[in-house]
């Protein structure tokens, strides 16, 4: 069946079998192999993307179910050559080693900060608990998300209302 999904603001249309998983639909799109695919069993979180702004494991949705919705992948974090604060935080705090879990960790943490600009360390831990990191350990990932939250808080934002 023909499926059209907006991924990072661009419409991707392809003819795929109806049972195609979203993770494969994304990864089979040229330039979009940043979303990883690990356990296949909804446990590792390497495949996490945002669907309409909410973090979802893309190995556990059919591409067909997402037609008409907005998908954002790790490639969608950087805008015009500027890294998202989450990406900068991972860089600053050495929050990746092999990098396999990183795209999922970043999308889960981006979703957290979108909803909660100033999370506690415990809230960060809960937010990334759907992902598994087998080499960095979680300490630096938590520090990276904290870094991003503080960085964002320090930016003058035109949308922030002074009260």
């Amino acid at each position: 069946m023909e499926i059209s999904i907006r991924i990072n603001g661009e419409t991707v249309t392809r003819d795929v079998p109806p049972q195609t998983l979203l993770v494969h639909f994304i990864r089979d799109t040229p330039g979009l192999t940043g979303t990883h695919w690990g356990c296949d069993t909804s446990n590792c979180g390497a495949c996490i993307v945002q669907i309409d702004g909410r973090a979802v494991k893309s190995c556990t949705q059919l591409a067909a179910m997402v037609e008409g919705h907005e998908v954002r992948t790790v490639e969608g974090l950087e805008v015009n050559g500027v890294l998202d604060p989450i990406q900068q935080g991972f860089h600053e705090q050495h929050a990746l080693h092999c990098g396999f879990c990183t795209p999922g960790m970043m999308m889960a943490s981006r979703s957290l900060l979108d909803e909660n600009a100033n999370p506690t360390d415990q809230e960060i831990r809960v937010a990334i608990s759907g992902g598994i990191c087998r080499c960095t350990g979680y300490k630096n990932i938590v520090a990276a998300v904290r870094w991003a939250a503080e960085y964002e808080a320090a930016q003058p934002s035109p949308t922030k209302q002074e009260v």
Binding site: S42, G45, I48, R54, A55, V56, K57, T60, Q61, A108, V126, A127, S129, G130, G131
Partner: peptide, 8 residues
């Protein structure tokens, strides 16, 4: 589950 699974 976890918050990501709970989203769906």
């Amino acid at each position: 589950a976890d918050p990501v699974v709970r989203n769906r």
